[in-house]
Amino acid sequence: MFDTNSLAFRDSGLPRAAPLRADPARLRALYDGPTARVLPFWRGKPLIAGDADSLAAGWLPTDAAGLEAAVEAPLFLGMDAATPRFALDLSAWEPDAVPEGALEAFFDPSEQVHPAFPPQHRFAELRGAMTGLTPRDAELAATARALLSWHARHRFCSNCGAATTITQGGWQRDCAACDGKHFPRTDPVVIMLVTHGNSLLLGRSPQWPDGMYSLLAGFVEPGETLEAAVRREVAEETAVEVGAVRYLASQPWPFPSSLMLACHGIARSTEITVDPVEIEDALWITREELLEVFTGAHPTIRAPRKGAIAGYIMGQWLADRLGDMPG
């Protein structure tokens, strides 16, 4: 329907080489080989290299100093041409200082420099770097971050409570006590471009920075279609009734492990009653006002984050590229 090349974490055609995951000896040989590269993470932040004009993922040789701080086995991400790509969690490393509250903030601007790593390498928030990375680096970093987040939350068996271990190159955890097998989860999330004529529905969460509004979004519930999830979430958060719904595009969103499913819904009502448990505020904005938002001229609403599907879909609607849909 339209070009999604401006989206972060889009498909770069990475060969994930899934058959290799079942061969631990082969993975070990690949990891120990001279061409292998590993991307370290520290508490959800990938290692980033370069300056603001030339960002890159901070890939290191697998025998680099400092990697010994990893607490679990490396995760196999795939074969990038002849280069095996891995990720390691270095969250046990303690930097000299971290600003108070930074790690719990909506966006953590702090950066951590490991003394053993090369110059201009630092751990940084992926949200801030995602549009500066190549599509391949961004896909690899998103995959690694989502996997590492899953591992951090699933160290114990949900069947019997015993400790689990990494297998299948990081794509599985096994329980020796009950023989349980556990696999990474991706949570489907609908994100809704809800329109009524020339107006678009926006909302904001209370923890967001001042001036930040975006499309409404919510998790798909068990036994629910995407269309039903769109209608339910919009009704729960704003009491706006949605009629026709269609799917637009998707984006992996590794914060921590979601798949954003963008949909366009046509509103059948416009009166808003906000559920304060769900969101802080919601409002209708016209195309003309949205143009002010995108150009930075709106007095109260800031421009959307580049690379995220919410801003992308809003931009497509602003440019009238979505086509007509019966209401």
Rank of each mutant, 00 (worst) to 15 (best):
N5D: 10
S6E: 14
D11W: 05
S12W: 08
S12Y: 08
L14A: 14
L14C: 14
P15L: 08
P34E: 11
A36I: 02
A36K: 04
R37Y: 00
V38P: 04
L39W: 03
L39D: 03
L39F: 07
L39K: 00
L47R: 03
A49T: 02
A49W: 03
A52I: 09
S54N: 15
W59V: 04
W59R: 04
P61F: 06
T62V: 03
L67P: 00
V71M: 06
E72D: 12
L75H: 14
G78P: 13
A81W: 04
L88G: 06
L88A: 12
A92Q: 12
L103S: 14
L103G: 15
S110L: 05
V113R: 12
P115A: 10
P115K: 07
P118K: 02
Q120K: 04
H121N: 03
H121V: 00
L126Q: 05
G128T: 00
T131H: 02
L133M: 03
T134A: 13
R136I: 14
L140V: 09
A142D: 01
A144L: 03
R145A: 10
R145M: 08
R145S: 09
L148E: 03
L148A: 04
W150G: 05
R155E: 02
F156M: 02
C157P: 02
C157Q: 01
C157G: 01
I166D: 13
Q168P: 10
G169I: 08
A177Q: 06
D179I: 02
D179R: 04
I191F: 07
H196P: 05
G203Q: 03
R204S: 04
S214P: 01
E221K: 11
E224Y: 01
A228R: 12
R231A: 14
R232A: 13
V234T: 15
E237H: 13
A239T: 15
V240P: 03
E241M: 12
V242N: 01
R246M: 08
Y247W: 08
A249E: 14
S250R: 11
L259M: 15
A262Q: 06
G265Y: 03
G265W: 00
T270V: 15
E271L: 15
I272D: 15
T273M: 13
E280R: 10
I285T: 13
L290Q: 10
E292M: 08
E292W: 07
E292L: 09
V293Q: 01
V293K: 01
A297Q: 14
A303N: 08
P304Q: 11
K306Q: 09
G311I: 05
M314N: 04
G315A: 10
L318V: 11
G327A: 06
